[in-house]
């Protein structure tokens, strides 16, 4: 079952149980809820910024879903804490490009670090949305944060 192990890499299975960043967040600068009506998965992302409003000081999420969506949210938290809004946006773009690749190309490990483990998901079109759920939620938070910053 090499195909399945390519999808569910150990690091993904580990993240799906560890669920880094799973929980509430006080004084959030932005908050966004995402829902996938085809499977019922849902997730609320919250971010808190530094005083300058430039950098993600902390991010956290609450949600329920499959192992791919939960692991992806966990890996996202590891990657994004402490990033500037621009750095975070750049990484979301890279993650999306990787998931749209249908297994082609080499993911940018320098940008995405451990999140390259989700490259295998790109071969399963029905699961791309699962992996994107938290990233789309964070993207909406960044948009909201930029709008507030003016």
């Amino acid at each position: 079952m090499s195909g399945l192990e390519g999808l569910y890499q150990q690091i993904i299975l580990d993240h799906s149980k560890a669920r880094h960043g799973d929980g509430p967040l006080e004084h959030a600068a932005a908050e966004h809820h995402e829902y996938n009506p085809t499977c019922g998965d849902e997730l609320t992302m919250r971010i808190r910024l530094d005083d300058a409003g430039e950098r993600i000081e902390e991010l956290a999420w609450q949600g329920d879903g499959c192992s791919i969506s939960m692991a992806s949210a966990s890996a996202l938290v590891d990657l994004m804490a402490g990033r500037t809004l621009e750095e975070a946006g750049e990484r979301i773009d890279a993650f999306r490009a990787m998931l749209r690749s249908q297994g082609a190309g080499e993911p940018d490990e320098e940008l995405l670090e451990d999140a390259i483990a989700f490259h295998g998901v790109s071969k399963y079109v029905m699961r791309v949305k699962c992996a994107m759920l938290s990233w789309v939620a964070l993207e909406a938070c960044l948009t909201e944060a930029r709008a507030t910053r003016g």
């Binding site: 079952m1 195909g3 399945l4 999808l7 569910y8 085809t38 499977c39 019922g40 998965d41 879903g65 499959c66 192992s67 791919i68 399963y124 699961r127 699962c130």
Partner: peptide, 29 residues
């Protein structure tokens, strides 16, 4: 402890085609 979509993915890889999800019956679920 395993989400239905992960169950379905595993079964698909094992050559078994099933349906996972709420089957258009959210109130029942």
């Amino acid at each position: 402890d395993v989400h239905a979509h992960d169950v379905g993915q595993y079964l698909d890889e094992a050559g078994v085609v099933v349906r996972v999800g709420h089957h258009c019956a959210q109130p029942l679920h």
